[in-house]
């Protein structure tokens, strides 16, 4: 029986992996000293931000590209403005929700800007700021205060792709005399802040777009 076979295989796998984890030797490769050495040159003081935007910049560059591709895939699978695919009933008639959203959304924007700025020297950064902004955009729609995005307008398209293009331009500029993602040491802190600001806007629009581009045109009070 399939159920039994799959459960047994999963259990066996789990036990095998757990016994392997418990018998692992001490860490063979430790990147922490290397990273600690690189941080003074990285332009930021917070190690996670330094990894994301400097030492492992490739990951972040390709990540925003992957997100754009995913959003394009969503637009192809569910074309905007097709009521059969995305009709959404009117939001609940509750005055509290819009009132709360009006209060929370500006605070969320404020908090997102703080988180973005804080990313240089303490936990925070573009990803978290973008997630907070996207949540604020979704909240505004769910409260019935803003319409869904019927189709990607020119302004929205520019916003969606700006983060990727800014990052790509800054990453590729050193190709003239060096390697990809080799920031000039004098400007590195500023460049990372520019990249992060672009990333925040684009990531927030992509994440919110995954939801808002599927919604119908109505729903505004």
């Amino acid at each position: 029986m399939k159920r039994f076979a799959v459960s047994a295989a999963a259990l066996g796998f789990a036990f095998w992996l757990i016994s392997a984890l418990l018998n692992l030797p001490a860490t063979l490769i430790d990147l922490r000293p290397l990273l600690a050495e690189a941080i003074p040159k990285s332009g930021v003081a917070h190690p996670v931000t330094a990894v994301l935007l400097n030492t492992r910049g490739y990951d972040t560059l390709l990540e925003i590209a992957v997100l754009l591709v995913a959003l394009i895939g969503v637009l192809i699978a569910v074309p905007p403005g097709n009521p059969a695919l995305s009709e959404r009933p009117a939001t609940a008639d509750d005055a509290m929700v819009p009132a709360l959203a009006r209060l929370v959304a500006p605070l969320a924007v404020f908090f997102a800007i703080y988180v973005l700025w804080a990313g240089a020297h303490r936990p925070g950064g573009a990803f978290q700021a973008a997630a907070i902004l996207a949540a604020a955009l979704v909240l505004l729609h769910l409260a019935g205060l803003t319409a869904a995005w019927s189709a990607p307008t020119l302004r929205l398209r520019i916003g969606l792709i700006a983060g990727f293009l800014i990052f790509l331009a800054i990453a590729a500029a050193p190709l003239l005399g060096g390697m990809l993602l080799q920031y000039p040491p004098a400007l590195v802190g500023t460049l990372i802040l520019v990249i992060e600001s672009g990333l925040t806007i684009s990531l927030a629009l992509v994440l919110a777009g995954l939801f808002l581009l599927l919604a119908d045109r109505g729903g505004v009070r």
Binding site: P123, F127, I132
Partner: peptide, 12 residues
């Protein structure tokens, strides 16, 4: 960092 992103993205 991950906790903040997970709370906003993973849960919300």
């Amino acid at each position: 960092d991950i906790a903040l992103a997970e709370a906003a993205v993973g849960a919300g």
